[in-house]
Design a protein around this nucleic acid. Structure first.
Length: 642
RNA sequence: GCUGGCGUAGCUCAGGGGUAGAGCAGCGGAUUUGUAAUCCGCGGGUCGGGGGUUCGAAUCCCUCCGCCAGCUCCA
């Protein structure tokens, strides 16, 4: 007798040859089951083993959700085949959020009307509640089947499957080569939406046939679907490209070139605050801050290996003469290495921590540029640590702690850590790789951090740690990175004199905390939805005199705020307060002081907070300390303490 | 780089072979105003660049540039 266990902890007995569906209560939250050895099992597939324990999965389970979306992808494919019989099926997997299905449509591309029709047909298929079936066929049978159905891509996939038999799944007249499993019938899908269409290559390779891809998503309830769509719209409202323009933080110019951000004064304020904080913290943690040139001779990049390994990401050569040429830098490391090498180094110099706010240029393919998040010119918060093998672990700990301390000041509190290990192609000795990887892992473990290992995910020159954070919307961003480099010390023949009087090769660690200021600003804009905390806001306080009579008083207040280090503006234009308030709210200025006849007479201000409205009348002496406190990095405005 | 879509005023957008439009923003004037848009007036454009078709092109065609979505790449 096999056992079925529901997420609520109820158990049901099912005998061999019987399908779980026959004994489970009729509840469409039950999608699929997981066997004891981790395989997924259709609820309509008869149990084969007597000692089996099947765990029933719902949409709440990540694997259950994948099956749900995969089944919806099949419904999408069925709808497309009904509406466009000439469409050729390819693949249709679940993805992080939803699913897609790729079709070969010849020269045809789907129109928005097509997508509406497809969605409507999918809903019909759900309403038909077609039973899903599973068949095991020999390869020969399957080949015949897909030849009859004229599905060349399925035949191609079929040839790559190992073993003698394959499974096909289907519903109604729809049939697909598929490993499964699937939900028992199309009626299991509660709410669905076709999201978009685009193109993709067959197997993702340029030169292969171009396919039409349709994205969609589904949820058990209409409410969950609506919540998803609202979150999606919220993400669009927060788009840093839109907010960056509206708040006048940065811009791009066709005349300057694509992917080359221009920091407007208001964005530059934010950057300067972050840079100042960054410098202070680096001073405090034993880094030495340096500056290096933006270009270097070709020979440098030949030595570093960039011309070999990184050329396609570099802007082309600047030729001065037949024998001399330069490249604009895509990385700062070769320059920091020159700083290391400018004098003989002893073990007493180590660890040597060189930090630079260094602007680099990388030639990104035109199609990948995206606002501030993917650009061709950007400024890294870079540092290189040169140390002995024995120091490596503590240096890694220092960097990881530094990254967390810094990022937490921006309200990020959920982090994921990934450790990437040696890939197949690598430089350096196995001993070094093992030691460095051990240092990274030990550092994380001693800090009590849990992490995931990306086996073989390291760069060819060394293992690394990446820190991924989640923003206010729960989206993941990779910012900080710590990477060992066994390549450059070798190529540049870096050495230090050890206590034994002999020459040794130092370890080199690349690290960035924010990644780049451009990307970090982009992330911050979306994280805060443009509502920067008081300490980061380009304009922190705007003073709004009601009539010209209060203008001198407003300027007097502004001078006092300015003296206290507050970024303040006076809006003494000849407009009504309502107008000035609306404008200040639109610009997301955190604090407004409204001053009229009454406030001036009492020497007070009427305080209004962005998004929160009128906070009543206060004396400046009471408000100023609160603002000064909120002006410190990482702090927030706490007006209730007044 | 590839596939598809889109480039009209600073911004958001209408117009799609017959003399370029709206709202907001800007500028000028009036108004001196109490917590998210006061009224009146004015200026603003090589319709992304170049080439072609046509008596005539913002509109149709070609090409280049840029933006957007996805792919690929990167991490």
């Amino acid at each position: 007798m096999a056992i079925l266990r529901t997420p609520e902890g109820k158990e049901f007995v099912v005998s061999v040859g019987q399908a779980p569906l026959e004994v489970l209560p009729p509840d469409r939250r039950y999608l699929v089951a997981r066997t004891r050895d981790g395989r997924l099992w259709d609820l309509f597939r008869p149990v084969e083993r007597d000692d089996e324990v099947l765990e029933v999965l719902t949409f709440e389970d990540p694997q259950g959700r994948e099956v749900y979306w995969h089944s919806t992808a099949h419904i999408l494919a069925e709808a497309v085949k009904e509406l466009f019989p000439e469409a050729k099926l390819t693949i249709g997997p679940p993805i992080e959020e939803g699913f897609y299905y790729d079709f070969d449509m010849g020269d045809y591309t789907f129109t928005p009307e097509d997508l509406e029709a497809i969605e409507a047909r999918m809903k019909e298929i759900v309403a038909r509640d077609e039973k899903v079936f599973r068949k095991v066929l020999t390869k020969e049978e399957a080949r015949k089947l897909f030849e009859e159905r004229n599905e060349p891509y399925k035949l191609e996939i079929l040839e790559e499957i190992e073993g003698d038999t394959v499974t096909v799944y289907g519903q109604g007249d729809f049939l697909d080569l598929c490993r499964g499993p699937h939900v028992p019938s199309t009626g299991y899908i509660g709410a669905l939406k076709v999201l978009s269409a685009s193109s993709a290559y067959w197997r993702g390779e340029e030169g292969n046939p171009v396919l039409q891809r349709i994205y969609g998503i589904s949820f058990p309830t209409e409410e969950a679907l609506q919540a998803f769509l609202e979150r999606r719209e919220e993400a669009m409202r927060r788009d840093h490209r839109k907010l960056g323009r509206e708040l006048e933080l940065f811009t791009f110019s066709d005349e300057v070139g694509p992917g080359l951000p221009i920091w407007l004064p208001r964005g530059a304020v934010i950057r300067r605050i972050i840079e100042d904080l960054w410098r202070r913290e680096h001073d405090a943690r034993g880094y030495q801050i340096v500056y290096t040139p933006h270009v270097g001779r070709s020979h440098l990049w030949a030595t570093s290996g960039h011309l070999e390994a990184y050329r396609e990401n570099m802007f082309p050569e600047m030729r001065l003469s037949e024998h001399e040429s330069y490249y604009v830098k895509p990385m700062n490391c070769p320059f920091h290495i020159q700083i290391y090498k400018h004098t003989a180094r002893s073990y007493r110099d180590l660890p040597l921590r060189l930090a630079e706010i260094g602007t680099v240029y990388r030639y990104e393919r035109s199609g990948v540029l995206h606002g501030l998040l993917r650009v061709r010119g950007f400024t890294q918060d870079d540092a290189h640590i040169f140390c002995t093998p024995d120091q490596a672990k503590d240096e890694v700990k220092g960097v990881v702690r530094f990254a967390f301390d810094l990022l937490k000041m921006f309200g990020f509190d959920t982090f994921e850590v990934y450790l990437s290990t040696r890939p197949d192609q690598y430089v350096g000795s196995l001993e070094m790789w093992e030691h460095a990887t051990r240092s990274l892992a030990d550092a994380l473990e001693e800090m009590g951090l849990s992490y995931e290992v990306d086996e073989g995910g390291g760069a060819f020159y060394g293992p690394k740690i990446d820190i991924i954070l989640r923003d206010a919307l729960g989206r993941r961003w990779q910012l900080s990175t710590v990477q060992f480099d066994f390549n450059l010390p070798e190529r540049f023949e870096l050495t230090f004199r050890g206590p034994d009087g002999k020459e040794h090769r130092p370890y080199m660690i690349h690290r960035a905390l924010f990644g780049s200021f451009e990307r970090f600003l982009g992330v911050l804009i979306e994280h805060y939805a443009g509502n920067f905390p008081f300490w980061l806001a380009p304009t922190q306080v705007v003073i709004l005199p009601i009539t010209d009579a209060q203008a001198p008083y407003a300027h007097e207040l502004a001078a006092r705020l300015k003296a206290a280090g507050i970024r303040v503006e006076v809006d003494d234009r000849n407009e009504r307060v309502g107008y000035k308030i609306r404008e200040a709210e639109t610009k997301k200025i955190p604090v407004m002081f409204v001053v009229g006849k009454r406030e001036m007479a009492e020497g007070k201000v009427s305080v209004r907070l962005h998004g929160e409205g009128d906070q009543g009348v206060h004396a400046l002496e009471d408000i100023l300390p609160v603002l000064e406190e909120a002006n410190r990095p990482g702090k927030s405005l706490a007006l209730q303490t007044v």
